[in-house]
Design a protein around this nucleic acid. Structure first.
Length: 551
RNA sequence: GGUCCGUUGGAGAAGUGGCUUAACUCACAUGCCUUUCACGCAUGCAUUCACGAGUUCGAAUCUCGUACGGAUCACCA
């Protein structure tokens, strides 16, 4: 046994498995030609970020389009930042947006698939097998430098204007012999394990990124920490081991990872493992004081996916938006195929833009309005009820107390070619329909301010004539003709042209009559088609509301 | 400071040397339609592709430089 092997045994006496064992345990996947294996690997440090949803959606789609596998993995190697319960909520929210994994971590103590465990803290032994191998082959070494020494070193580098980090001459512990290392460990000194980089900063590595194409970067020369003093691996090392043994073919991740690419490439090369194809996704941005910056969970509401859930943006509409920024040819496809499911669209890496899109709430709103407008009544009823049951007790109560009535309200001008688009999100519903309910009406009416151009005299005249003769059993056309008759009797023009031609001859036009009625019945200047509103309220209630205004 | 990435209208973008007097979608504006709003329809909105130089008969498209913006340089992922 040589000294490196001794060192490896000293640090990991209990690890007896070998790399070969692992290779056998996690064999190559049996998948069709060209199938992509992708993953989403979040850390349980908070709620799902809009950028993460974007990335995971793309990963899932790439796998699906190629009959591959999309799996989830929990990267919980940083215990300090871990937020209890966030792993579960991450998965839960992913599912809500339809980004369902085929395999992997599915929540606390739940997982599916043959390549697990899918929680990194449970894979400690797997990492140790690889690290032990690296130690035994002098590809890695223990480092005893203290945080103080390291920051001291950085100051020196700053002063000398040299690159920061642990490399070349600065990699002090890389010069230690195995015997020295063994001695210090036996003395009980703390240590981490670093990768012994063979790279030279002056050389270039060529890398092909699925989105960005050919890139040249300086070789890695950093002796990065792969094993922390708490016994867990760092991200870089876990990426190497997990994506190898889970047989990931395509790593899709945010572009903030690009600078560490040479590091990852060197890691894979050192093990003689084939590196996955990398696709570095653009990051979703936001305009802040004229500057673009990453969407920030702390500053921007729209950075947390929960915001859209709470507000009640329809998921299909929101995902539609994400698709439009993911692939530039998606919108054109959608126009040509308005009725196909978005999943029928095939993603491609080369239709992804290179710089991050500014998050455009206005466009999200447009797409959501479109979706909600085109939903049939049944679906709209169910979805809005479902949303209300979680996020709006007030709306939920209204629905439950009379589902049929609610359904009638939301069915106005729906299921037709050009439906109304009143709502962009479910939270818009309640304020817009309150007037239908007498309890709300009776309160709201107290605060009503009648526009000055309608005098009480005008109002009395119109309402008195209208209320004594209106008939809701008429067709919409006849109902409207009746309104015109009332208009004429009261001295209003029946159409816009007549009125415009000779404004002095009239008190106003039919639209003024309609406005008075609308105001009285709905307490608003804008509402859905009055005829339908009155139908739903019924003659008795409409009469009551009108009479109440005659003074 | 080093390294990498990016730059076409307010936003997303098409465009890969001549078909571009720069598609399409959102936003915005105006008009038409209309019982209001919304819908729908029509029109307008980059004399120009960050800037400068070069290659070419010809450049948003190729080359070089500059500027600007972003990412990153942890025992965080």
């Amino acid at each position: 046994m040589n000294n490196y092997e001794k060192l490896a045994n000293l640090i990991f006496p209990d690890i007896t498995e070998t790399i070969e064992d692992l290779e056998k345990r996690y064999p190559a996947r049996d998948l069709p030609e060209g199938a992509k294996v992708t993953r989403f690997a979040p850390s349980p440090t908070g709620f799902l970020h809009t950028g993460s949803l974007f990335a995971s959606m793309i990963s899932r789609k790439m796998a699906k389009d190629s009959n591959g596998v999309f799996y989830t993995r929990l990267e919980d190697t940083d215990q300090k930042r871990e937020v209890a319960g966030s792993g579960d909520s991450l998965i839960d929210q992913l599912n809500k947006f339809g980004v369902t994994p085929d395999e992997g971590y599915l929540g606390t103590d739940k997982e599916k698939g043959n390549y697990g465990p899918y929680v990194q803290s449970l894979r400690a032994n797997i990492y140790k097998v690889v690290i032990k191998y690296m130690l035994a082959n002098n590809m890695a070494y223990p480092c005893f430098c203290s945080p103080e020494e390291l920051s001291e070193m950085r100051k020196v580098q700053e002063a000398k204007k040299e690159n920061f980090g642990y490399y070349a001459e600065y990699a002090k512990c890389s010069k230690l012999s195995a015997e020295e290392a063994i001695e210090r460990i036996e003395k009980g000194e703390n240590f981490v394990i670093r990768f012994r980089s063979q790279g030279d900063y002056h050389n270039k590595v060529a890398i092909d990124d699925a989105i960005r194409g050919h890139i040249e970067m300086a070789e890695n020369d950093q002796h990065l920490v792969i094993y922390k003093s708490d016994g867990l691996p760092t991200y870089h090392f876990a990426h190497l081991v997990d994506d190898h043994f889970m047989r990931t073919t395509h790593v899709t991740r945010g572009e903030e990872w690009m600078p560490s690419l040479p590091m990852h490439i060197e890691l894979f090369n050192s093990m003689n493992w084939q590196a996955p194809t990398y696709a570095h996704l653009p990051v979703i941005m936001k305009l802040d004081n004229g500057n673009r910056r990453k969407l920030s969970k702390r500053k921007d509401l729209e950075a947390a996916v929960s915001f859209f859930l709470e507000q009640g943006y329809p998921i299909e509409g929101f995902m539609e938006y994400l698709y439009t920024i993911a692939n530039s040819n998606y919108e054109a496809w959608r126009i040509e195929n308005p009725d196909l499911d978005k999943d029928e669209f095939k993603f491609s890496f080369d239709k992804m833009s290179l710089d991050g899109a500014l998050f455009d709430l206005a466009k999200v709103q447009f797409l959501c309005k479109e979706k909600l407008g085109r939903m049939n009544t049944e679906t709209f009823f169910n979805e809005s009820r479902q949303w209300a049951s979680v996020y709006s007790p007030e709306l939920f109560e209204l629905i439950e107390e009379n589902p049929g009535f609610y359904k009638q309200i939301v069915s106005i001008e729906r299921e037709k070619e050009n439906p109304r688009k009143d709502y962009e999100k479910y939270s818009d519903i309640l304020p817009l329909i309150k007037f239908f309910y007498n309890n709300y009406y009776n309160e709201l009416v107290k605060e009503l301010i009648v526009p000055e151009n309608y005098t009480q005299e005008n109002i009395n005249e119109v309402l008195t004539k209208y209320v004594e003769s209106f008939d809701l059993s008429l067709s919409e056309e006849d109902w409207f003709n009746h309104m015109k008759e009332v208009a004429v009797e009261c001295g209003y023009a029946t159409n816009r042209k007549d009125y415009k031609k000779n404004p002095e001859a009239y008190k106003g036009q039919v639209s003024d009559v309609a406005a008075i009625l609308r105001l009285v019945v709905t307490l608003r200047l804008q509402s859905p088609n009055l005829y339908f509103v009155m139908q739903i309220l019924g003659k008795e209630e409409v009469t009551r509301r009108i009479k109440n205004f005659i003074k």
